[in-house]
Structure formats: C-alpha cells, structure tokens
C-alpha cells in the first residue's frame, strides 16, 4: 500500500510539476495544481499516525503549507511572487522546527532567513526590475526533464527512508536515554547554547570570521566600479522612474 502511494505521488508529482513550471503558455496550470495537491496528499498519507488528532492535524498543516508554498516558489513566473512564497516556506519550516522542539532554530530561521536574507533578495529584485515579465521568467529550461529529475530524487530518498524505518529499533536512542534519566536538557535553548560555546567554540569563531569576510567581499564586489564622477548608464530594458535622467552620476 505504502509503495503504491509513493509511486502514485511520484508520477502525479512529475506531471504536476511539468504542468506548473513556466512554459510560455498558461494552459494546464490549474490541472497541475490539482494533481500536485493529490500527490502531496498521497505523500503525506504514507506517514504513520503520530498520536492525538491535534498533533496529527498540526503536522499535516505545517508540512502541507511548507511543500505547497515551495512548489509555488518554483513555479511562479514573477520573481517577486517567488520570493514571497519562499517567505511562506520559511515560516512553514520554522513552524516544523518549533514542532520538533528546536525553538532557537525556529526563531533563527525567521529572523535570519525571512528577516535578513529574503529582504536583501527583495531589495536586489526591486533594484533589478526589468520592464514587465521578462522572457526568461516566462520560459523554463527543459521543464519535463527537470520535473523527472526532481521526482526520481524524491523516490530514491523515500525508498531509503522506508527501508531505514524497517531496520530501526522499537525505541529511538533518545527514548532509551530518557528512560535512563539522561534527558538532553530541560531548557532546549540554554542546552543548545552550552553545547555551542563548549564543544563547538572554534567553529563559532570561524563562522563569525567567515561572516565578516563575506561582508567585506560583498562590499568590494559592488563598489569596485563606482568611481567618483563616473557616469553609469541605466541598463537597457529597465524603466527609469518618472522625472529622472537616464543615467546616474556617482558622487
């Protein structure tokens, strides 16, 4: 039964992704959305019951939200909409992390990804906004092949997961440890901080240095061409704002 559900989800998902990806025409997008929803339902139906109805419903809601908005991110033509749908994916992921008890990571996902990375991305999109919808946004490379590759990857992953699940012991190592009175930590955030700044202290310092280097590198990449007094022409295909010259003088 599970095997057939997985196979059905994979086949339907491939067709749905092919229909949903931008192909230069709109025909079949609604059919793709319906097929995609069915495939998502079949994929989530393979998960055994988690426990009470509230837990189950919350998991289905969060997982469905995350995957559906990820599909929208991939398939929408306007890159601004893609970014907004990706924001929803991030909120779904953060919800799933909270659901697992990883509170700090859930908060960090929202703060760093949705708050910083996504906003930077929207800034760049607004700076680089061509007139209308660009042709390269309305036509994907080899949509059928890409969809096939994606679902084959999903099929391989899920086959691996199900075979791992069969080989798993009845109790997870975490449950065994909890029975022996060795809980990983009462307050997850403080336990994570203690772990981070004891065993992984060097890695934390290296990550901080990496962030600083990336900051300097990004500034150097953007600023290398802007000399004072230089005139930068506005790129072709962009819309000059009203009452603004067609070129910018660097001060």
């Amino acid at each position: 039964m599970t095997t057939w559900l997985i196979v059905g989800a994979i086949v339907l998902g491939a067709v749905a992704l092919w229909l949903l990806l931008p192909r230069g025409r709109k025909a079949g997008r609604r059919l793709g959305a319906v097929l995609g929803a069915i495939a998502l339902g079949m994929l989530l139906a393979t998960v055994p019951p988690l426990g009470g109805w509230f837990t189950q419903g919350l998991f289905w809601l969060l997982a469905g939200l995350t995957i559906a908005s990820a599909a929208c991110t991939v398939s929408f033509r306007n890159p601004v909409y893609c970014a907004v749908w990706f924001g929803l994916t991030l909120f779904g992921t953060a919800g799933l992390l909270f659901f697992q008890g990883a509170q700090f990571l859930g908060a960090a996902t929202i703060i760093i990804y949705a708050g910083a990375i996504l906003v930077t991305l929207l800034f760049v999109l607004m700076l680089a906004n061509p007139r209308g919808q660009a042709a390269y946004d309305r036509r994907a490379w080899e949509a059928p092949l890409a969809a096939t590759v994606g679902v084959v990857l999903l099929g391989l992953f899920s086959t691996g997961f199900f075979s791992t699940l069969k080989a798993m012991p009845q109790q997870t190592p975490a449950q065994v440890a909890a029975e022996k009175r060795q809980p990983p930590g009462k307050y997850a955030v403080s336990a994570l901080g203690a772990e981070l700044f004891s065993r992984h202290l060097v890695a934390v310092e290296v990550a901080g240095t990496l962030l600083l280097a990336a900051l300097a590198g990004a500034v150097a990449v953007v600023a290398q061409h802007a000399q004072p007094g230089q005139v930068i022409p506005r790129p072709e295909g962009t819309v000059p704002p009203a009452r603004e010259p067609n070129e910018v003088t660097v001060r």
Partner: peptide, 17 residues
C-alpha cells in the same frame, strides 16, 4: 519526507528556472 520534498523541489527549480 518533508525534507526530501523540499530538496527535490529545490533541485527542480534550480535546473529549470
């Protein structure tokens, strides 16, 4: 499964867009 779906969708988008 959710993680695999995210990775697969990301692959599709990276290849196609």
């Amino acid at each position: 499964l959710v993680a695999a779906a995210l990775v697969a969708l990301g692959t599709v988008g990276f290849l196609a867009r």
